[in-house]
Design a protein around this nucleic acid. Structure first.
Lengths: 168, 168
DNA sequence: CCGCTGTTCTTGAAGATTTAACAATGCGGG
DNA sequence: CCCGCATTGTTAAATCTTCAAGAACAGCGG
């Protein structure tokens, strides 16, 4: 022993200057982008970004239907949050609920025709916003780097606790 | 003319496969990370990530004081949101308000001693979480790439409308 | 000094999210 | 079959965010 051992983790390893700069940049970029997309979609489609993502998921699903839990997993949100979101989307007439035939506990969320129309109407503007914020400004190499970086990050974050024991 | 001209923007340019993949990865990574940090800080410090960021800003300011507007700019949030946040932090005794001497409209938010203690107590865990999610998993080159990518993104997103005419 | 316009910050209400708890059902072993 | 435990989805309450509106002051031109 050379002096101490009851420390929880000795002196925490702070971030280097480069790391601090990267972290700061990350926070600014992600905050501004999420804000930007939220406002764009709220204005053009009457819903926040997350809700839009739910409609996209449903539009890609087999019969525009998906189990609640699966939808929540894909969207990376809790089931509770999804419940509220679907309730709201249902009020708008963009989504409907259906009982799952194979599991009496289950519910299917399904995209209505009206929901599909709203989605198709909002999609171009949304893509343009994403493109304008990212893909029109980054080189193809950077896009590849971003994808790989995010993949690594997401890999390390697959929740295992509480209400989000998604994956594994 | 070859057939039409009233289109808003002809056929929108959709995302390529690489771009879709990158976008998907980005959404997953950022959603999971924000979630992770929010829970970590809520558990260990009793506040969400954004509020923690406010305390950090204040701790770095000259006399642990900052004008509301400047604080909002640095944190990339609206003044309204900041008002509510500071009200909550004030209830916790972690922040106090002070009148600005040079501008009777102005308010200073200041970090209290108790707020500083809370911050110092939570910082190691927070840094560890950030490190574990990002810097322990990325190569130094990737950290550099991420910083540059985020810098470019943030550059293109400096809001000019409505309540966020920050910068310029 | 007045009036005009812009900035600063706050507020209330509506909407969104989190957390913990709960009802209902599925599933496996005895 | 029945029990115990896990899964599915919902709900209520507390908290947080957004949006629109407004009060108070600053700064400028006349």
């Amino acid at each position: 022993m050379d002096g101490m051992s009851t420390e929880p983790a000795a002196e925490p390893r702070w971030l280097s200057d480069e790391e601090q700069y990267a972290w700061q940049s990350y926070l600014h970029a992600t905050t501004l982008l999420e804000d930007h997309l939220d406002r764009q979609l709220q204005r053009d489609a009457g819903m926040p970004h997350v809700y839009y993502g739910l409609l996209v998921q449903l539009s890609r699903a087999p019969r525009r239907r998906m189990r609640m839990t699966e939808l929540a997993q894909n969207a990376k949100i809790t089931r509770s949050r999804l419940s509220h979101a679907v309730a709201r989307l249902e009020k708008n007439g963009w989504v409907r609920r259906e009982n799952c035939p194979s599991d009496k506990r289950g519910q299917l969320a399904l995209l209505t025709d009206e929901g599909l129309r709203v989605l198709e109407k909002a999609a171009p503007g949304h893509v343009a916003a994403v493109r304008g914020a990212i893909f029109d400004r980054l080189s193809p190499e950077q896009v590849g780097q971003l994808a790989e970086i995010c993949r690594v990050m997401a890999d390390g974050l697959q929740p295992k606790g509480a209400d989000l024991p998604w994956l594994r």
